[in-house]
Design a binder for these strands. Sequence first.
RNA 1: UAGGGCGUAGCCAAGUGGCAAGGCAGCGGCCUUUGGAGCCGCCAUUCGGAGGUUCGAAUCCUCCCGCCCUAGCCA
Length: 563
Amino acid sequence: MSEPVDFIREIIRDDLAAGRFDRVHTRFPPEPNAYLHIGHAQAILLNYGIAQEFGGKFNLRFDDTNPEKESEEYVAAIKRDVRWLGADWEDREFYASDYFEQLYQWAEELIRKGVAYVCDLPPEELSRQRGQPIRDGDRIITPPGVDSPYRNRSVEENLDLFRRMRAGEFPSGSRTLRAKIDMAHPNLNMRDPVLYRILHARHHRTGDTWCIYPSYDWAHGQSDSIEGITHSICTLEFENHRPLYDWFLDQLGVHHPRQIEFARLNLTYTVTSKRLLLRLVQEGHVRGWDDPRMPTIAGIRRRGYTPEAIADFVRRIGVSKAESIREIELLEHCLRDDLNKRAPRRMAVLEPVKLVITNYPEGKVEEFDAVNNPEDPSSGTRVVPFSRELWIEEEDFREDPPPGFFRLAPGREVRLRYAYFVRCTGVVKDPSGRVVEVRCTYDPATRGGDAPDGRKVKATLHWVSASHAVDAEVRLYDRLFTVPDPLDVPEGEDWIGNLNPDSLVLLRGCKLEPCLGEVQAGEMFQFERKGYFCVDPDTKPGLPVFNRIVTLRDPWAKLQGKL
RNA sequence: UAGGGCGUAGCCAAGUGGCAAGGCAGCGGCCUUUGGAGCCGCCAUUCGGAGGUUCGAAUCCUCCCGCCCUAGCCA
């Protein structure tokens, strides 16, 4: 294990060495109330990766303790996503709801021990008594809480009330079961936290069996304990809860995992919060959870991101306790790095303009061999047809080329990839002055793309033979937000205002080389000079639909942005 | 002077008393039938700040500053 050792792996290694545990067992514990996002990918890969490296096990457990927000749809989506990332939970698919009865029994145990009681306080009163912060001049003081008037009920009364809670005798929200810890505790989580609330709601797995549901705090640690988890890895906000989980486990005298907290992943130009993503979906700012602009696993999968690239990204960002915002550029780098090695090259003209080679025989068709992937010789070659009329990229021709532009312009000579050198001899314009056709002549001696006299050209263009082209729809995706930190808005303004109006540019009538006529959803290609693209599930026979995954690095575009 | 965390380059991040790894971004250059890829070079006299201990401090001590989390019967 000379690979990167983060502080979590270090702790685990030390635990093993010290004999605190003799095995490693991790888990990923999502709540099925939304789709997973890129931040979860890090947690999944971290937990699964650790289990693998230490020869341990990895569980998938749904923390389904809030029936009002959860559903089977989310369960299914989450399983699909975790599997896609390559994390294998084998037969260990669990649910906190599997443990409801055990949790209930343990709650009775605490009551019998005199460390839990039924409280009749309404929500607002309960929260007030736990200790609201008070401003004292410049300081903020958190006063001690106030003991509930129900705190000293007898064990018998508590047991009776708790059982009647379970039996459904009381309305939702009317009572709670609370742990009796310390209302003056400096850690608010220790001020008699709620273990059970009454909720007459149908649960997606247990149906109407229960009308009281355990709080997350009461369910989470014990669920880990039941599963024999050794290392409960979670995000920073649960650090404050650790003393409470420790208290529960110690009171119960059961297996006690070690909890380790790390900083959640933040990414520039994106939001990673289930609540915020839910809003984007519900308000229709995107087409759904799997919209290719979404940072959800489902979204980036459809976009064309690969599990390998994501794993590489996660490996590179490491893990720490320092809160941070990662730059999206690193993710894009990992993607290009992965796709560069695996994506077959193709020629595709996205915004076509006609190129007519006036000295090329009409009706003649030549075929050229094109390399499928210069990074992978084993991927071989394919044949592309060439003829007198071609499509080239509109932006590859400029009537008045600016400084630094070395593509096609009147009088200029460029190479058509794999084919010939051509020199621009003129243009044809429509009445509005727009160039609708570029005319040129070719040099037969440059067949294949090299000039026998050794002369050079400064640019190589991609092209597609007009009569052989396949039409396609191409969806150009860009960042969903225009600013690095979308949530950073002036007081009173909505972060929705930071949405990028150009995050999706729809292109129809794109011209593809013929072999792209039959493709399967999910297939990925590099469209030379344009970027990496993948076939969208919306593809229909005769009309391929491609998503742009990410552009190629493009110094010229960058230069222009600065001009 | 609530409790719990965190501060090393633009963004991350190694570093665990012996003299600041690496990646991304950026900037130069080479090469190129993708302005892609690849290759080479540059990019912290200094680790939030100030003192102190030490032959020697990002690492140990003291004080200070800044940021984050918690105050749901959400997770």
